[in-house]
């Protein structure tokens, strides 16, 4: 399904892993094989990429640094901001843990179980990704809000934050683990069984270790998405300072108050976390690729 899109980055720069019979290795250091036409294409693409992504992100870091270290610390040390950071990180961590357990379970069910309606489940998994975030918030509000058919009144509480984050991050682990589980060699499991391993041992010693990199990658993406979430929280959490206000909302209120420097300071911290996740992912990826 959309695994190519939610999964960890395709390892483009490294060894191309083709499904075809082995081809020669093409890894002879940083070479340059650009033709003039391709060079022009790369130039134009880089120009646009810089104007759209690189320069604006640099602007955040530069603006954040303008006020010097002290103003940086001031922004982050303000009680309200600190509460937002704490809330966001805590809820993102909880949701990531939930996703590791439930996401892996869902992936397992999708790959190894067979039942009526499984293909529908498979499509529904992607809904949180395609659904506009503001709609996601509204949707959750109708089941967990004031007129909840379940009698739950979770709107404007920490629970609402968790709910929204769980909703938008649902596909990440499912979609990274699912393809790995599909590719998992049945022979290995059978070999282990023939060697006397019990089901529990096979799951623990054979299956989970093979899934671990995918779970880690999915968890990283899910955490990164959770700490940066905004849209789905707008209607659901009420954005109450000290209670349900997340970092993104905090950044937005800085922007709306014209305090771009504080906004940039907080945003640069979020960027650092995003960057950290990307680098960590790249490393996990390389590990796995090397392991063959």
């Amino acid at each position: 399904m959309t695994s190519a899109l939610l999964g960890p980055p395709a390892d483009i720069a490294g060894e191309a892993s083709t499904g075809r019979p082995p081809r020669r290795r093409r890894t002879a250091g940083p070479r340059n094989t650009l033709t003039p036409g391709a060079g022009l294409g790369l130039g134009l693409a880089m120009l646009w990429f810089s104007l759209l992504v690189l320069i604006p992100l640099t602007a955040i870091i530069v603006t954040a640094g303008e006020g010097g270290w002290s103003s940086y610390v001031d922004v982050l040390a303000s009680d309200q901001t600190w509460a937002a950071v704490k809330l966001t990180v805590t809820q993102a961590l909880i949701v990531t843990v939930v996703n590791v357990v439930v996401g892996t379970t869902i992936a397992w069910v999708l790959v190894r179980d067979r039942f009526w309606g499984k293909s529908v489940l498979d499509v529904i998994i992607d809904v949180p990704f395609a659904l506009p975030t503001i709609v996601a918030g509204l949707v959750l509000l109708s089941l967990y809000g004031p007129q909840s058919p379940l009698g739950l009144e979770w709107a404007n509480t920490e629970r609402a934050v968790m709910l929204a984050l769980a909703f938008v991050t649902l596909p990440f682990i499912v979609r990274t683990v699912q393809p790995v589980l599909e590719e998992l060699d049945h022979d290995v499991e059978e070999a282990a069984a023939s060697l006397g391993a019990t089901r529990g041992t096979i799951v623990r010693r054979i299956i989970l270790p093979s899934l671990a990199p995918a779970i880690a990658a999915g968890a990283a993406l899910s955490f990164a998405r959770a700490i940066s979430e905004y849209g789905s929280l707008v209607l659901l959490s009420g954005n109450l300072p000290f209670r349900t206000e997340v970092v993104s909302v905090r950044v937005l209120s800085f922007i709306e108050n014209g305090n771009t420097q504080s906004a940039a300071a907080l945003a640069s911290v979020m960027l650092a976390v995003a960057l950290f996740v990307i680098v960590a992912l790249d490393i996990v990826q390389r590990r796995v690729a090397n392991r063959g």
């Binding site: 980055p9 602007a59 993406l221 990164a224 940066s228 993104s248 771009t260 945003a267 995003a274």
Partner: peptide, 18 residues
């Protein structure tokens, strides 16, 4: 891949600054 893990609000701010 950066845009996948940057908050939309931060994206907006970044464009605003430039």
């Amino acid at each position: 891949d950066i845009p996948l893990s940057v908050s939309p609000v931060v994206v907006g701010l970044a464009l605003l600054l430039v």
